[in-house]
Design a protein around this nucleic acid. Structure first.
Lengths: 153, 153
DNA sequence: TCAAATTCATTCGTATGCAAATGATATCAA
DNA sequence: TTGATATCATTTGCATACGAATGAATTTGA
């Protein structure tokens, strides 16, 4: 092998061209898998509620009555998505809706007594879910990870 | 305030009970948001393909012809999901299907010439998408983040 | 060998998630 | 004041994502 060949080989090894794209190493792909894993852990602990549904309940418990859109922005859901989530929670009697007295465009959402009980019962379990999701990391790693993840989101 | 009151207050501050659950700090919630952000960045660069569709094409480009289920396991999609993705890629002429000669259960998937062209054209853009997704982090932070994220996924 | 278990694929039902269009109401600005 | 904008909510259409059920084909094991 000539010196030129060696040089070419090194360049190839250090600068992968478009023929060497590693899907499994792309942040989007791994982010999707990590999210899938979390949803799966969530479902194993809380079978009758999805993460978005629980997010809506937890946020309502936190801030009290709010409009549907406002709730959506608090839990990072667009208007169309939050509507579906709230509809299903309402059908199960966990939230109730009412019209805003002054601004007739707004639909106010609040927890029912049953919804409040559910959230308060589930919050300790949600803490377990967070812990189990982070279990592959040491405490120190988890702290670093959360800091960096927050920067990305 | 008595010494006892002070002690109670400290305990409360350090050991939040179930009334103090911060949704915005839970790994699942932030993971969902980070994933949403990535999908949005992806869509801004590649409007006519979704991340799962691109993943299927990129993986086919990598490994060549495979069965639908095998492809699914390579890109972390269950059988029902991968079927939908492949159906849509087939309808657009980017992949083609054929029956496995020996094992009649299997459906083989491969790139068409058009599909191959598309992947090769898009891979450099996909690199940009990865970069932009990680842009809020320094190079050092990004390296640490990817290592930890991989552990979680 | 042949019955049981496994694998591959499909279908159905449910639940996000988002873009775009629409309608009602509110706010702003000339 | 009123016409242009903006906001809130709904609806439709499309695309993941997964559990569960089903059927066809293959493999295993007693």
């Amino acid at each position: 092998m000539s010196a030129e060949d060696v040089k070419l080989k090194l360049v190839e090894a250090e600068e992968p061209d478009e023929n060497d794209y590693r899907l499994q190493e792309q942040v989007g792909f791994i982010l999707r898998k990590a999210h899938q894993r979390h949803v799966s852990i969530f479902a194993a602990h809380i079978a009758d509620l999805t993460p978005p549904q629980f997010a809506a309940l937890a946020k309502l418990h936190d801030v009290g009555e709010t409009s549907q859109n406002q709730l959506g922005s608090l839990i990072a859901m667009d208007a169309a998505t939050v509507k579906g989530v709230i509809d299903r929670l309402k059908a199960r009697g966990l939230v109730e809706l009412s019209k805003h007295e002054v601004d007739k465009r707004r639909l106010l959402v609040s927890l029912t007594a049953e919804g409040r009980n559910a959230v308060e019962r589930l919050i300790p379990i949600a803490r377990d879910i967070t812990q189990e999701t982070l279990a592959p990391l040491s405490a120190k790693e988890a702290a670093i990870f959360m800091k960096l993840l927050a920067k990305l989101a």
